[in-house]
Amino acid sequence: MSETRHPLRHGDLDLDLVCRHVQGALEVTAGGDMSRLTSAGDEAGRLVLSDGERMISGAVEVHDERVVVSWRGRSWVLERRDVQARGGSTGSSDGTGSGHIEAPMTGTVIEVCCEAGDAVAAGATVVVVEAMKMEHRLVAPAASSVTEVECAAGDQVDIGQILVRLEPDA
């Protein structure tokens, strides 16, 4: 019987799911535990699985590079380690990647609080962006010097756009 391995990652945690199809059921082995799943169908937008004892109800979305699962009011993003990530942003979602400050979402730059050459302390406000009618202060993640400012007050910026480049202090 053939099996498929799905290497996933959640944060720093590597997770390997091994799947086998056995007599109309899906056997999933994760961390040494095996569950035998069958579909209990679909209930008003919820995917319902049975592991023989309990029902598991949630929603699942499979992307090329990740799987998103909604269960009990929370959602988990599981990256697929076997799929090469496509280029794109490397900054964390709060817009404070190590070497630059990114727009956390589409909005308007209200204020730029630094200039190229400035030394900024960890937590210092670098740029203020307005989105959805609220102001958001983007702060330096670590003590850094500002190498480049790529936005100005009044600019419309897109999510992920680099606003300020930083060189973290050694």
Partner: peptide, 13 residues
């Protein structure tokens, strides 16, 4: 990650 989430992910994949 709760096991239930992994089950749903496995099913989806």
């Amino acid at each position: 990650v709760p096991p239930e989430v992994l089950m749903l992910a496995a099913w989806g994949l």
